[in-house]
């Protein structure tokens, strides 16, 4: 498998998970850079070219609310989970846990076979 193929598959794998991570992080308000920093500290690396447009898209879909606030001499746009976003996040978390529960034994099974 080429690096390009691997990158493409990783991107596909990460796409949905990143939405989940962003929604979960925005239970508390964040502006773009502070959100990126929080995700990075949590071990989720995401470049600004992906994150900032993603936040805007989620806001356009009504999952996030936003407001401009002045701070440290300049303005920043703070995002936080909307009511609709909070409802959807609960359902997504359940879906994630179900998927995780189903996929993990499959992956572990493969690992066991490889080890044997």
């Amino acid at each position: 498998m080429t690096t390009a193929q691997l990158d493409k598959l990783k991107l596909e794998l990460r796409r949905g998970v990143l939405v989940l991570a962003v929604l979960a992080s925005l239970k508390t308000p964040h502006y773009g850079y502070s959100l990126r920093k929080q995700l990075h500290e949590a071990g989720v690396d995401i470049d600004e070219g992906t994150l900032y447009p993603l936040i805007r898209r989620l806001a356009d879909q009504g999952l996030l609310d936003s407001e401009w606030q002045q701070g440290e001499g300049r303005e920043r746009r703070y995002y936080h989970l909307s009511e609709l976003g909070a409802e959807l996040l609960e359902q997504l978390i359940q879906e994630w846990q179900t998927l995780n529960g189903a996929v993990t034994p499959l992956l572990t099974g493969n690992n066991d076979k490889e080890n044997n």
Binding site: Y31, G32, Y33, Y52, E75
Partner: peptide, 10 residues
């Protein structure tokens, strides 16, 4: 406006 805020943060 948003892009400017993000660049200045960086």
């Amino acid at each position: 406006r948003e892009l400017k805020a993000n660049i200045l943060d960086q």
